[in-house]
């Protein structure tokens, strides 16, 4: 009797919220079909997948693909390249937007400041394809603008796009050119919400502009910085496929091949789907562990956490 009553209560509650559920329905269904089913699809990393048997009937192979991957010479190369690109990106891409925001904050309010912000964030709206095309064009040894500019000083540039040593720097610097200004907007906003009486009090105490920057501006940015840092760390192994793939060529592959481009090459172009899915799963799991760890550390150290 009591149970029946409870069952009725559930129905009643469901019925009461039915319009809310209706609004959720489209996104719910799309997530189910195109995000949650592939999540189940990771089982193929433990199978010898083929189209005929599908996710459900393909024969199991356990951890075979993972073991093969960890033991291959490629594993260390991919892991090293991925880590180099992402740590290098963070080492410059994390502090530079903060420095930009601090510099921008020193400008007097007015039209020029707004103009500066517009200019700095403009490259963010160039597509990845165009950006990579520009990099390749500019670095061309025969007709590129960089070799022409170097020529003004009597220097000669090597073929940088074909150089394994230059690749990480090309990747990181072009990324900075495109995104540093855009990434600084968040910090500029945080700075603009600083209570102006703080600056006035500091001025009264005879603080110079540089001292105000050190003792007011930077501490004010710490919460925003921690959140951004956690988000960044989470994507360490998620080095953007799009840009690396476009800048890659046969000459620079020893340093430009990363996990995501290899998964594409192996699974989609090469048709070895189970192996590629296993490598992709390894990537996802490590990334997840990283976010959770950094989140915890940040929570302990600064009290700022994502979750």
């Amino acid at each position: 009797m009591a149970k029946q009553k409870k069952g009725k209560g559930v129905l009643k509650k469901l019925n009461k919220n039915k319009e809310i559920y209706l609004l959720l329905l489209p996104s719910f269904v799309l997530l189910l079909l195109f995000i949650y089913i592939p999540m189940y699809g990771v089982v193929m990393a433990f199978q010898d997948y083929n189209y005929v048997d599908g996710f459900f009937k393909s024969p199991w192979v356990g951890f075979q693909w993972f073991i093969e991957f960890f033991e291959s010479w490629r594993f260390w190369r991919l892991l090293r390249n991925t880590l180099v690109l992402s740590l290098y990106s963070i080492a410059l891409g994390f502090p530079i937007p903060i420095i930009l925001a601090l510099i921008c904050n020193q400008m007097r309010e007015g039209r020029f400041k707004k103009y500066f912000q517009t200019v700095m964030s403009l490259p963010h709206f160039i597509s990845t394809v165009v950006l990579c095309g520009m990099v390749i064009l500019f670095l061309s040894p025969s007709s590129g603008i960089f070799s022409a500019l170097a020529g003004l000083f009597g220097a000669e540039l090597p073929n940088l796009m074909g150089s394994t040593k230059a690749f990480p720097t090309i990747y990181v610097v072009s990324g900075l050119w495109q995104n540093a200004g855009w990434d600084s907007i968040l910090y500029i906003a945080a700075l603009s919400s600083v209570d102006p009486t703080l600056y006035e009090a500091a001025t009264m105490d005879g603080a110079s502009k540089f001292q105000k920057l050190l003792h007011i501006d930077i501490p004010m940015l710490v919460p925003t910085m921690s959140i951004q840092f956690i988000l960044r760390m989470g994507s360490i192994l998620g080095v953007g496929f799009e840009k690396v793939y476009l800048l890659q060529n046969n000459l620079n592959r020893p340093t430009s091949e990363v996990i995501s481009t290899y998964v594409y090459q192996l699974g989609i172009l090469g048709g070895q789907q189970s192996q590629a899915a296993a490598i992709g799963l390894f990537n996802t799991v490590v990334s997840l562990a990283l976010v959770l760890t950094v989140n915890k550390i940040s929570d302990r150290m600064t009290g700022n956490a994502l979750m």
Partner: peptide, 25 residues
Amino acid sequence: IRAYYMIPMFFGGGLIPTYINIRNF
């Protein structure tokens, strides 16, 4: 419901299962 919408931010099937799923549909 909130959990259902939050999980995809942290975990996903990855490129290959997603690709196969699109082909299957």
